[in-house]
Nucleic acid binder design. Sequence first.
DNA 1: CTGTGGTCCTGTATGC
DNA 2: TGCATACAGGACCACA
Length: 281
Amino acid sequence: MPELPEVETIRRGLAEFLTGRTVVGVQVLHPRPVRGHVGGEDDFAVTLTGRTFTTPARRGKYLWFPFVDGDALVAHLRMSGQFRLDPAGAPLARHTRVTFALDDARELRFVDQRMLGGLTLSAGGAALPSEVSHIARDLFDPELDLDATVAAVRRRTAPIKSVILNQRVVSGIGNIYADEALWLARVHYGTSAAALSEQSVRRLLHQARAVMTRSLAAGGTSFDALYVNVNGSSGYFSRSLNCYGREGDPCPRCGTTIARERFGGRSSYLCPGCQPPARLA
DNA sequence: CTGTGGTCCTGTATGC
DNA sequence: TGCATACAGGACCACA
């Protein structure tokens, strides 16, 4: 469920307390989240013990935790993953899957209801894990080439929403911020990306970055307990959403009733007034 | 290569 | 009170 603003909120929360800490013990409570580790769960625990964290990093929705030895722990939260930092011995949250005891009497805990997320040790992955290298830079990345990204979007003939959700084209955008950006830019989700002008794509990406910036300032979007910060607190941005989750409400811009439509196997929220389908050419 | 749809999971809400 | 079904902030993989 977490998209860029939520993952970045978590990264910042972890950076404060994880940087410089050493792992003194690992417990794998459920094997599924470490399924990507070839050596199995026991080896995962053994090989991570004794390592010292440097500053956590992020690209799009991927997180990784570089160690001083040059390796990294790669994490993806998928739909329901969370990280929590708690005093050692504090009660475990429901669905806690892996715990890392730290040398300051705290624990880093990976919690994941649906277990679609995962943790992997990436050998030599401190700077950029190979598991992340296929992911495009995100809209917050200072090294993002915006012109090239605009061109890459317009090279696609798929519906624009599919293209901005494609993490190989531009990363970090998920279902909420895709719908919000499309609403802000007044673009219908089904419009072929190739049919949009360069200026339209530029505007759309600008709005995507803008809405994610505002969300980050609010600590991200929480609909329920499935997204919380590392200390268990919720984000406040859901109240600022213009269309996502607002089926039946009036459009804040024109008053037309917000619609929910099925697209690509998931829900899309849009204003039929502000975002009419593109005219067939 | 590009686009699409199924699949991995658990839990909750809703309808009969 | 069951029980079935739909749906959920994501990404990978097989297939046309």
